[in-house]
Design a protein around this nucleic acid. Structure first.
Lengths: 275, 275
DNA sequence: CGTAATCTGTGCGACAGCGAACATTGTGAA
DNA sequence: TTCACAATGTTCGCTGTCGCACAGATTACG
């Protein structure tokens, strides 16, 4: 195994792509990539699936395929045609843009509130971005043909997916502004909060190196900011495990971007939508 | 009139909002804000309108309202409910995010290739962004109720609009990454090229101050970068008029972001779509 | 035609984040 | 138990952008 830690920083994202995070700590959590079984988990932990009207529920359930989503798994590659859409239940997926130089930046994050692969029903079939599992977990997937078919019924499913897409757009736009104007400290808080919202519990399994890749900054910068947060008593971490001790503190320290995005999600995708 | 030039920078966007750019040079081009007449211009200069199948064309033409779009006009405000969608023909519209601090950043630009107000058919009816006319010109607008109705026919119009939205998403995402990783010089090139693509001719009417607001940087920074470009013989400018002398030179100097976005627009919205 | 305002250029000091090199500390696997 | 390596901590010089102050240059308008 080569020494990832000592490679020039710009090469790392390429590595991640080729090896699908084959570093030892990652494969540990991985074993077989897509282990499929008939619904051993609850699809309704995904908010979109939970919001489906009864009729679509009946139709969808047999078609939904349960999948494990190990850390580092690439759900789709820049420019590639998608074969499925994914509904995470316990996993979190990052939508990453990777530049020619190898530098990258996260443009949005999708968890149990959403769906990965909107380009399938939006029409393109692909995007210049990459979808990577940022936090291991589970989810369900649906074939490309079926999601298109369901979308084109032009019923409640379509409007639900469009509202979700609108919320995703907000997140992307806010990320753009945040990248421009806010400090790394603030952005780290925002990122932690976004992740926290999509998880159960208060522990994130995530090294600073990976966070740096998501945010598109140096690992050392994340170390610095994380130290600040730890000194302030907001988080505690060690070797890839981050415990959030004071969520309110994080919210106080982050920029407005977090609240704006959250509010927009709540507005567009109210909790009690299911019949 | 107060001295805009000497106000703290962060106040400027607020000013722009309140006064709709009432500075003297702007009102010059303005007179009555929406001067409407029955189609004195060609709606098919807008690519989306030009792509409409014959049937929708017939339905839409009587409903399309010709409007002048003066520099600085605010088409929609953050959070406000839209009453129309706009199809620019010769105008260019910036989608801006404005932060609480007053700082702002452009997240996308819409010209004769697109439509302003996607949240109307996407479902929200509003977004946290603001739509401002960045380059004066003309366009057409359609009432909120009509665009929703047409969208909900679930025919070619819907798919056209969705593909456009997908392209817009790409632009926003690329902007986010560009904000993170590329130099102001490169971003200025990108911005000039994006504007150029949406105009006829090679002259932009745009002060460095306004460009700075769009890019979310200091005016002095734009001065510096513009000087570089001028010294390199790529542009020539004076007092709000920028002449592009060497378009290829700009393309050589900009980051990949421009090409990625353009390619995606071409892919999703091919020129010859109309029947 | 002269004056006021706009637009552009320039020169500071300050600072956040970068790139690189290296030290330190846990931790899993042999 | 040991040891290799992953994860984190620390330093240093560098660059790009910021914030501010102010000086020309050019144009609009009375």
């Amino acid at each position: 195994m080569f020494a990832i830690a000592h490679m020039p920083r710009f090469l790392l994202p390429i590595l991640l792509r080729l090896t699908h995070l084959s570093a030892t700590t990652l494969t540990r959590a991985t074993h077989s990539a897509h282990l499929m079984r008939p619904l051993p988990a609850d699809p309704f932990k995904n908010h979109l699936l939970a919001s489906l009207p009864t009729a679509e529920r009946e139709r969808w359930l047999p078609a939904l395929e349960w999948v494990q989503m190990p850390l580092g798994q690439v759900l789709y590659e820049s420019g590639s045609t998608l074969r499925h859409v994914y509904f995470p239940t316990t996993a979190i997926v990052s939508l990453l843009y990777v530049l020619e130089s190898g530098a990258s930046a996260e443009i949005a994050v999708v968890g149990n509130e959403g769906i990965v692969g909107i380009s399938l029903f939006m029409g393109g079939g692909s995007t210049p971005s990459r979808g990577v599992v940022q936090s291991a977990g589970e989810g369900f997937r649906l074939s490309a043909s079926m999601i298109k078919e369901e979308f084109n019924r032009s019923g409640p499913v379509m409007h639900l997916l469009l509202r979700y897409t609108q919320a995703l757009i907000t997140q992307m736009a806010q990320t753009a502004v945040c990248n421009r104007h806010h400090s790394l400290d603030q952005q780290l808080c925002r990122w932690l909060l976004l992740s926290l919202d999509r998880l159960q519990g208060t522990e994130l399994v995530m090294t600073q190196e990976l966070i740096a890749n998501m945010l598109g900054v140096r690992r050392e910068g994340v170390t610095e900011s994380a130290l600040n947060l730890q000194r302030a008593g907001l988080i505690r971490y060690s070797r890839g495990r981050i415990n959030v001790l004071d969520r309110n503190g994080l919210e106080a320290r982050t920029c407005e971007c977090y609240a704006v995005v959250k509010k927009e999600y709540d507005r567009l995708l109210p909790d009690k939508q299911a019949s």
